[in-house]
C-alpha cells in the first residue's frame, strides 16, 4: 500500500485559513434554513390541530374506508354515471375552447413584441394574473349564482379561469417567436397586421394548439370536481356518494375518472405529436 507523506496540520491551517475556518454564516446557512422550515412545519402541525391520536384513529378509519371500497361497484347507476362522465368531458372541451378563443386576442395585447409600451401591457398582465389567482371552484360558485345550477356554469367557470392561464401562456409563446421571420415581412413592406398574420401566427399557432390540447387533459381533471359545488358533471355524483358513504360507488367513480383522464391524456399526447412533432413536445 502506498503512503502519502505525513501532512503538517499546523502549517496547512496557517496556509489556508479559509478552508479550516469557514465563517459561521457559510457553514450554518443550509442547516439553519432547514431548521427554520421544519420549525414552521412543527408550529403548523400544532396549530392546525394535528395530534398522534387523531392521526392514528383517522388512518384506521381510512383503512376501513379503503376496505369497503373493494370491489368497485356502480350498483344500478352505471348509465347515470356514464352520462355524467360525458357531461364532464363536454365541460372540459367546451370550456377550454371558449377560453382559448377569448385569450388569443388578449394575449397579443400582453406580449412585449406586439405592445412595447409597458404602461399598456402591465394592466392587461395584472388583469390576467388576478383571474388566475381565483380557483376554478370559486368561479363555478360565482357562475352558479349567475346562470343557475348545472353544467353550463361549469363550462363558464373553466372558460374564465383558463382565460387567465391561456392569456399568460399565449403571450409567452408570442414573445418567444422568432423575430427574424417577422422582420422579413416588415422589410418587404408589410403592415403590423401583416406581421402578425404572416410572421407571428404561423409560428405561434402550433405552440398554442399544443397548449390547448394539454389543457383539455388537465381540465378534464378540473371538470370532475366542479360538480362538487353543483356545476355539473361527475363530481356531483362523487360528492353525493361520499356524503352517503356508498364507498363501492365512490371507488367506481374514481376509477372512471382515472380511466377517462388516462384516455384523454393519451389522445392529446398523440395529437400534440402530430401537430408539433416529437422534438417540440419534450
Amino acid at each position: 500500500m502506498s503512503q502519502l507523506p505525513k501532512p503538517d496540520p499546523q502549517a496547512l491551517r496557517a496556509k489556508y485559513p479559509d478552508v479550516f475556518e469557514r465563517p459561521a454564516s457559510a457553514r450554518l446557512a443550509t442547516p439553519l434554513m432547514l431548521l427554520a422550515a421544519f420549525a414552521v412545519l412543527a408550529f403548523g402541525l400544532f396549530d392546525l390541530g394535528f395530534s398522534p391520536s387523531r392521526l392514528v384513529s383517522g388512518l384506521r378509519e381510512l383503512g376501513w374506508i379503503t376496505l369497503m371500497m373493494i370491489p368497485p361497484d356502480p350498483g344500478s347507476s352505471l348509465p347515470t354515471y356514464l352520462s355524467a362522465l360525458g357531461e364532464t368531458l363536454s365541460i372540459a372541451l367546451l370550456g377550454t375552447t371558449l377560453a382559448a378563443c377569448m385569450a388569443l386576442p388578449v394575449s397579443l395585447l400582453a406580449a412585449r413584441n406586439i405592445i412595447p409600451s409597458a404602461i399598456f401591457r402591465f394592466p392587461v398582465r395584472r388583469f390576467l394574473d388576478s383571474i388566475r389567482g381565483v380557483d376554478t371552484l370559486i368561479w363555478a360558485l360565482v357562475w352558479i349564482n349567475v346562470v343557475g345550477l348545472g353544467p353550463f356554469a361549469g363550462v363558464l367557470a373553466i372558460a374564465v379561469s383558463d382565460f387567465g392561464a391561456f392569456g399568460k401562456l399565449f403571450s409567452e409563446a408570442i414573445e418567444a417567436a422568432d423575430k427574424k421571420q417577422v422582420e422579413g415581412i416588415r422589410a418587404s413592406g408589410g403592415s403590423t397586421l401583416h406581421e402578425i398574420r404572416f410572421g407571428l401566427l404561423p409560428q405561434v399557432l402550433p405552440v398554442i394548439a399544443g397548449q390547448v390540447l394539454y389543457y383539455i387533459e388537465s381540465n378534464t381533471r378540473s371538470a370532475t370536481i366542479i360538480g362538487i359545488v353543483g356545476a355539473g358533471g361527475i363530481g356531483l355524483q362523487l360528492a353525493e356518494q361520499i356524503r352517503v358513504l356508498e364507498w363501492q360507488k365512490v371507488s367506481f367513480l374514481i376509477l372512471m375518472i382515472l380511466i377517462a383522464v388516462a384516455v384523454i391524456d393519451w389522445i392529446s399526447t398523440k395529437l400534440r405529436f402530430a401537430i408539433i412533432g416529437q422534438r417540440a413536445v419534450a
Binding site: L48, L62, I65, R221, I225, I242, V250, L258, A262
Partner: peptide, 18 residues
Amino acid sequence: TVPGIVFALVFVIAFGLG
C-alpha cells in the same frame, strides 16, 4: 390524478372536519 378536493372529501370523513 385524483384531485386534491376529492381527497379532502374523503379525509373529512376519516379525520373529521377541520
